[in-house]
Nucleic acid binder design. Structure first.
Lengths: 156, 156
DNA sequence: TCCTGGACCGAACGATCGTTAGGGTGATGG
DNA sequence: CCATCACCCTAACGATCGTTCGGTCCAGGA
């Protein structure tokens, strides 16, 4: 297809970015929806990281916009997108909060930092992940490290 | 300054990118050089994360290239840069390896994953960090979380 | 059968980008 | 006092980008 032909499908480049950004938000939220909302928090965290990395690996185009290119959205669209993005992060955070409140995670856990580090790991993975990588195993390595830490042994 | 005037200082845009990329590598390696090479590994990890985040906050331009824009380097320069970058990551990894070997960290620690998650946190921070943030405190929150994990309590 | 509408092409537009060339300024040192 | 040099400007170039427009091709419905 020639570049001009694209314009029988879209109105403008900005519109296209907006569409893909919404697709991205939808994909990541849908992936999180697939995570059970009961059962051991630890397993739900593992499932959430797996789900996120799976979207990155299987829908690289929309993931690119959701993770990086959204910054070029303008005006109200930017705000709407950012709200959707913050909601996504909040869903992760509430996972950690729930784990703390239930006593399945440390009672002094900083759930904000926890969500930040977890999402940093999977978002940064976007940077270097090669198509065809075993994302579930990678997610599990992240989960293991984040849960039990590097020092000493857990009280599991 | 007008865009044309720039060319009395540089040869080409690619040359400028290459210069800044090297400055970036130098800045991050120099920051790591400031971390003691003996003493408790835990404290050295904390210092390394602090050092990295400090470069991000105080030299945002070179950090941008070191973290993100290096991908537009071409040919041999790209290879040279990538070697320097891998060496940087390796310096982090060897910190964790040493901690494991000395028994200051878990003996079953996956030091590759540990370095990856630690660097993911600070590199992703580049994305959202606002100038004027308290980077040392942020680095310490990362350190605490990574060392002790989210589950149970450390054997500290 | 013809008509319509959608998908794509080809060519062109204005704007921006990386770069070059030529010229002007002002401080410095012989 | 003048030559030099670093530094910056203005103007223009070719290339690329986002977009428009007129036209061609083809499938489906009337």
């Amino acid at each position: 297809m020639q570049k001009g032909s694209l314009y029988s499908h879209i109105e403008s480049k900005a519109d296209l970015l907006w569409e893909v950004a919404r697709e991205g938000a939808e994909a990541f939220h849908a992936a999180l929806d697939g995570v059970a909302d009961d059962g051991p928090v630890v397993e739900r965290i593992r499932a959430a990281l797996r789900a996120h990395l799976r979207v990155v690996a299987e829908q690289l185009d929309v993931a690119t916009v959701f993770i990086r290119e959204w910054r070029y959205l303008e005006g109200e669209r930017r705000d709407v997108f950012l709200a959707e993005r913050r909601r996504y992060e909040e869903r992760f955070r509430s996972l950690f909060r729930e784990g703390r409140e239930r006593g399945e995670l440390r009672t002094d856990l900083d759930d904000g930092a926890a969500a930040l580090v977890a999402l940093s790991s999977v978002n940064w993975a976007y940077t270097w992940l090669r198509p065809g990588a075993k994302t579930d195993e990678l997610a599990d390595r992240f989960t293991g490290l984040l849960l039990d830490g590097m020092r000493g042994y857990s009280s599991r």
